[in-house]
Design a protein around this nucleic acid. Structure first.
Lengths: 341, 341
DNA sequence: CTGAAAGCGCTTACAG
DNA sequence: CTGAAAGCGCTTACAG
């Protein structure tokens, strides 16, 4: 293995000079700098990451803690992860991805062994058991997902409350007076998916303020249950003219359900979903939908985290809670309700 | 930070003894072993990963090189990644995930800086530019995806040729004599997705052997193009009674297309797809399909890689090329073709 | 502008 | 069964 000692010897300088020439941390004569650069080039030198980490207490690695809840659709996490890994690389960091069941253990292991300079937590729950450990760690952390207690961490998430309000307002403005909201399965919520509540509560409150009816329901995250459940939900609320879907599986199942019932959207039913353009395009989800870019959230979290790691933030800079606003993509699945016959 | 020196002092032994007590690499008196364990417990000691890596030349980290081709559906990669990260953890390794555009650079960086003990490459192309670099690296590598030249690496992939044969045979046995195969977009293939060819070639050959007709077509990876293209393809081959889909977007778009045309599966058209149960469930893909578990592939690759890293394989143990067989999931979308009227 | 030396926190021959 | 010491490959005060 070629070390900085080899570089120094070939360049005819001391190891410290070689090191400084590479880091640029002190003035070096142009002549020496070139000799060192040539030696590096000739020998194909790359610093040993472990040695550097030991000497500097910096690993240039970020820990990314993913978390797959039961019944959650894991692939949906990919966009967040790519946002983090790409964002990290742009800032000079690599990313250690951890998916193990026991996030607390993983966090402790990476923190205590000094494998990473900071953490990004994905899929953060309302009362996430990883948070106390993160606050104890010497490395800073940024979250994707809004917990109840945001002390000591930087937080980034979609503004789910705004999503709920936008959904309701959009249909209300078109003249709808009775809506159904289909959320993700209740036990996903129970496991910590507070975002489901944030959206539902805001929708309910907005409906109340507008003086319209909102039926809020949970539903399965896949076939065959979701098809039957949608049918039952539509049966139960024959007066509803608008359907809000916070559940990708429901959006995918709905076209078939409507066809079976002889219904068409938006003629018989206005529909607004919540899913990414990417999913809509690949899986033919045909409804107008609200989303905000997942990758952007990952990048934001990383940028803030790296700023803290590198102390480009004042030591006491307040932690941020940043909720990014929803974006509405119109696919023509909403219209004024049909006049009551 | 608490170091092994602290542990040694508290336990009243030398640092080497403390180290040996922890590693178990030499006999230690029970008494001393307990004192060391107690000290570790009391101080909350965890070895510094960088220091250990420097001393042992082992990082206990695997490099995972993902690669997202243009127009590929990134989330589909998630299952492979989770197979790798979970598999690695079970064997005592962490995973550094790299998604950067320039895989060659990334590979070189991780290899030369000694950040990882081995590599897993995802989405390996027929002539993958990362392979020469991997062969030059001192760390071993395992691939998910079958390249043209498999020298010096362990290879794991789906048996796409078998998938093609199974698809054709299944419909041939039911009495079909004219089939259509819809593959992924041609430029995905051009970028290295040789698996598309492997499936298509095998299907074509099998059709020939069976004496039946197979029309092979490429199609878009999403809406709105895919819907129109499916329509055009069906228009072009009115005599076809069976449809083979190596394209998730096509499977998602087909129900709507068939409904529009007043057709039903399997009555008017037998359909076999290729996608995971997970996708089928979440996105209401209704067709019988062939797949093999992506996560398993990731785990297999990691297991073999770790065996090499830890020299549990004879130094000259031949590299493996392992193709895992397809599994058919029947969703009732195939039947005998209707008698010609 | 440059060099000799100490130190980061481990592991592991070497010696007893 | 245990300890003193060297060494892994860097960086960075200290000295000139």
């Amino acid at each position: 293995m070629v070390t900085i000692g080899d570089v120094a010897r070939v360049a005819g300088v001391s190891r410290s000079t070689a090191s400084y020439a590479l880091s640029g941390k002190r003035a070096i004569s142009p002549e020496v700098r070139h000799r060192v650069a040539a030696a590096v080039e000739r020998l194909g030198y790359t610093p040993n990451a472990g040695a550097r980490a030991l000497a500097t207490s910096q690993t240039k690695v970020l820990g990314l803690l993913a978390r797959v809840l039961e019944d959650e659709f894991a692939p949906a996490m990919m966009q967040y992860i790519l946002g983090v890994t790409d964002g990290a690389r742009d800032l000079g960091y690599d990313t250690l991805l951890v998916s193990e069941e026991d996030g607390v253990r993983a966090l402790r292991r990476l923190a205590d062994s000094r494998m990473v300079d900071g953490f990004v937590l994905l899929n953060v729950a309302e009362h996430d058991d990883r948070l106390p450990v993160l606050r104890d760690a010497r490395q800073p952390g940024a979250l994707v997902g809004l917990p109840a207690d945001t002390a000591g961490v930087d937080v980034f998430d979609h503004d789910f409350a705004a999503v709920g309000r936008v959904m309701v307002d959009h249909l209300h403005a078109l003249g709808h007076r009775e809506l159904i909201l289909v959320s993700q399965p209740e036990h996903v919520v129970a496991r910590g998916g507070a975002y489901v509540w944030r959206l539902a509560d805001a929708a309910r409150q907005q409906a109340e303020e507008r003086g319209i009816t909102l039926h809020a329901r949970f539903a399965a995250s896949g076939q065959p249950e979701i098809g039957r459940e949608l049918d039952a939900i539509l049966d139960a609320h024959p007066g509803a003219t608008g359907l809000l879907l916070n559940n990708e599986a429901a959006a995918a199942a709905l076209p078939g359900v409507l066809t079976e019932r002889g219904l068409r959207s938006p003629r018989d039913l206005s529909v607004i979903g919540r899913y990414s353009d990417d999913f809509a395009r690949t899986f033919s989800l045909p409804y107008s939908a609200i989303d905000s870019a997942a990758g952007e959230l990952g990048r934001l979290a990383v940028a803030q985290l790296v700023a803290r790691i590198e102390h480009r933030l004042a030591e006491e800079a307040p932690h941020v809670v940043r909720l990014i606003p929803p974006v509405f993509t119109d696919r023509g699945s909403t219209a004024a309700p049909r006049p009551v016959s």
